[in-house]
């Protein structure tokens, strides 16, 4: 649903102004634009689709009710993400661990496997280690690497200074690296370094292309 298919697409900030003026359709447009990204973000915290949908809905309702407080000093998307992150955190407090735990992810490697780890295990191990990072480091890393947000946006979502957001990201990445090296020692991953280099290099090349 576009506001005016013939006219130029309005920016988020313009749509927010329209919503403040009482235009319901403008909010509908904002929902269309951001619901997918918000669902993806929610699914990172809460593995259950139905709960993630609830978070998205609740976040949009809160955004609508508080939209008069949005002053446009940051992007609407990061403001919305901030609401969603806080809503998800509140929800996580009331949930049993199985919705958010990564314990069910198989980290170990078959002891009899001589050929080293397969790509799937390796990726699962990385995902599991990302989830084991301290909350703020994980949030900074997730928002930066997975959501491609700027540090300014991340700082706003995390409600912290810019440098703190960057520091959380750096520490998270380095901690992840250390942890993966420890895992290398704990397992039979003989070709760990090669795998990192080859897999990482391949993904990096794909990303750069």
């Amino acid at each position: 649903m576009r506001l005016d298919p013939k006219g130029p697409m309005k920016s988020d900030i313009e749509l927010v102004e329209d919503v403040k003026a009482g235009d319901r359709r403008a909010f509908s447009e904002l929902v269309q634009r951001h619901q997918r990204a918000l669902l993806r973000l929610s699914l990172r915290f809460l593995k259950e689709l139905s709960i993630a949908e609830d978070i998205v809905q609740e976040s949009f309702i809160k955004a609508f009710e508080k939209i008069h407080l949005f002053e446009g000093r940051s992007s609407f998307k990061s403001w919305l993400f901030q609401i969603a992150v806080n809503t998800a955190k509140n929800r996580l407090r009331g949930l049993p661990r199985e919705f958010v735990n990564i314990d069910d992810i198989h980290l170990g490697v078959d002891p009899g496997a001589e050929s080293g780890m397969v790509q799937g295990d390796f990726r699962r191990a990385i995902r599991a280690e990302v989830e084991r990072l301290p909350e703020r480091q994980r949030l900074a890393l997730t928002l930066r690497i997975f959501e491609d947000l700027s540090f300014k946006e991340i700082a706003q979502i995390m409600a912290c200074p810019y440098d703190t957001a960057k520091a959380n990201y750096r520490h998270g990445l380095m901690r992840l690296r250390e942890r993966l090296e420890e895992l290398q020692g704990e397992t039979d991953w003989k070709d760990f370094e090669t795998l990192v280099h080859v897999e990482g290099g391949r993904m990096r090349t794909e990303a750069e292309q």
Binding site: R36, F146, E199, R204
Partner: peptide
């Protein structure tokens, strides 16, 4: 290069069932 590779690996590990 190793930090770049690690970053690319983390990004490649992303798997959100959308």
């Amino acid at each position: 290069d190793s930090i770049k590779d690690l970053r690319a690996l983390v990004k490649g590990s992303d798997e959100v069932p959308m």
